[in-house]
């Protein structure tokens, strides 16, 4: 038999194991008396910090226009191919806008690459983690669900400016 080398040789008490078992059990028993950390979800809701990566949303400027210029970088960088963008021409100065912007929330893995790559700060991760749908079609979020007014996203935008 190969001699097993340990960092520290076990003492006799440790080797008979029973004492160690009791030590472990005392530890877990102490834990039982500690305060609980569970949140009662539907009544109490988790308010995520600014660094939280919830569902990606599109920033809507105060004049009601989306920031997005449909460059398709988010779509290209998305490792799960969740984002599909169709650009079109607009009379606005930005020339180009997303006629269609769809995120398949079944594909999305909340990695935040889209946000990181976006040259316009137009797509950001929100704090929304409540995503429920009952069929595949509902899981594809279009512009109607994705556009969020910029005022509601200040937290995240400031976070990005500070740490990105």
């Amino acid at each position: 038999m190969v001699e097993k080398k340990r960092k520290k040789n076990l003492s006799f008490l440790e080797r008979i194991y029973v004492v160690e078992i009791f030590k472990g059990m005392i530890l877990t028993f102490k834990n039982m008396l500690r305060p609980k950390v569970t949140m009662q979800y539907p009544e109490v809701k988790f308010e995520p910090p600014a660094s939280y990566r919830g569902r990606p949303v599109l920033v809507q400027e105060r004049n009601g226009v989306e920031r997005c210029v449909a460059c398709g970088l988010c779509s290209r960088v998305c490792p799960a191919l969740a984002i599909e963008v169709q650009a079109a021409e607009t009379e606005l100065e930005k020339e180009r806008y997303p006629q269609k912007f769809e995120i398949n929330m079944l594909r999305c893995i909340f990695c935040g690459f889209c946000e990181e790559v976006c040259p316009e700060e137009a797509i950001v991760m929100s704090k929304d983690y409540e995503l429920v749908f009952t069929n595949r079609e509902d899981a594809i979020y279009g512009k109607d669900k994705l556009l969020i007014p910029v005022d509601k996203l200040q937290d995240r935008l400031e976070f990005l400016r500070k740490f990105k």
């Binding site: 449909a70 460059c71 398709g72 779509s75 290209r76 650009a87 079109a88 021409e89 180009r96």
Partner: peptide
């Protein structure tokens, strides 16, 4: 072809 698609798509 203007704005119809990105070339890499």
């Amino acid at each position: 072809f203007r704005f119809k698609s990105r070339v890499w798509e």
